[in-house]
Amino acid sequence: MTSLISPATSDKAAKVMLWVSASIAILTLLFILGYIVVQGLPVLTLSFLLESPRLSGAEGGILPAIVGTFCLMLVALLSAVPIGIGAAIYLAEYAPVGVVTRIISFGVECLAGIPSIVIGLFGYAFLVIYLGFGFSIISGGLALMFMILPWVVRVSEESLKAVPGGLREGSFALGATKWQTVSRVVLPSAVPSITTGVILGVGKAIGETAVIMFTAGSSLLMPTSFFDPVRALPYHLYILASEGISDPMAYGSSVVLLVMVLVINLAAVAIQRHYGRHHVRN
């Protein structure tokens, strides 16, 4: 069979097409970023970051929303990390490969696939109403925990499994027990990549508006305890825009949110860089 197009031509065509795809992807990203930054820039002042909102957010700043977002992330992290890493250690190191492990892994996969709006609704019914936490940082943080838990489990499990088997054998050969081996050699070796993964997970969770609008509330006041309601940044900008309160303020909030995500991602990269050289090149 002879082809109408010569290999050299199709090679060139493929290269051009891939180049076009890459350019479109990058340009789209730059366009979105540029548009938001340009729109948000006029309201971005120090007082925007450090003041409370006035007139439903049409004036003033967004400090309570920034603080609220931080608190939600903190609760989500402090609850998801120990549970997630514990589950991952069990799955990667202890659970016999078989039906039970597969069922747990499948459950984790399913949890990861639940739409955030459903998690939000469940958080509302279970945390806000049934457990009586009300609209609060605790409710929102725990609902976000449900959201990032599967991610933390999966990232941690993969990080643990990537630790070279030779390290485990080396530890056992010195007369260490299983738990000593796991806690002193395997887990520390996996910590850098677990940390990176978890931080990236937080970067995704920070924008999960659907989860927190059902659970964290929409108070514009500065929270004073973890049982106070807060309005997280993404929800704040949603309300600003959807209720026509102030478009510039919504864009200003978007820029702050983007910067937070950027900082989080840079932190993940920095940790990876810093610890990368410690990893055994096996």
Partner: peptide
Amino acid sequence: GMVFQKPNPFPM
């Protein structure tokens, strides 16, 4: 004790 084919120092 045992020494393995591939050196396996712990990352510490």
